[in-house]
């Protein structure tokens, strides 16, 4: 079982934050097929968040095929992120660390690096949306 948290200053909508946390846990192997997600009532009560927000997040995850709702029982993870993509993750993470090292050597401070990275992510997201 995972525990959710919300960052009210992140500028990311609460339901998006919940979705990201589930995806993140899947990628890191913290959630596997068959695991149950906390009930809507539990999440609403512990985070003081609107139950519709939790429902919306779970529905979106269901639409993506990551979880399935069993009526009257709960919401369960249906897909384990494959070992291969976990391995790819590690390799990419190493490459990114190396890239950050090169950027620092080129004289960029961490804030500039973050700005560069965010801009690249945003423009990729925009292309994906088109």
């Amino acid at each position: 079982m995972i525990e959710f948290h919300l960052d009210s200053r992140s500028g990311v909508a609460p339901y998006q934050q919940l979705i990201r946390q589930v995806r993140h846990a899947l990628r890191l192997g913290l959630l596997r097929a068959g695991d149950q997600l906390p009930t809507v009532k539990d999440v609403a009560g512990s985070l003081a968040v609107n139950p519709n927000t939790v429902l919306k997040a779970y529905r979106e995850l269901e639409y993506e095929g990551l979880v399935a709702a069993k009526p009257g029982v709960g919401t369960f993870v249906t897909k384990t992120v494959s070992e291969a993509s976990v391995a790819a993750h590690q390799r990419l993470s190493l490459e990114l660390s190396a890239w950050i090292g090169r950027a620092q050597q080129a004289g960029l401070d961490l804030e500039s690096i973050e700005a560069l990275f965010q801009r690249a992510v945003r423009s990729a997201a925009r292309e994906e949306a088109v």
Binding site: L6, P14, G45, P51
Partner: peptide, 24 residues
């Protein structure tokens, strides 16, 4: 919020705490 999930009623709440309203 726990009660809202359990009892399914409508809520109208006036507040100055907009950050809280964004969650609930």
């Amino acid at each position: 919020m726990d009660a809202t999930a359990e009892q399914e009623f409508s809520v109208v709440m006036s507040s100055h705490q907009v950050a809280d309203l964004e969650r609930v």
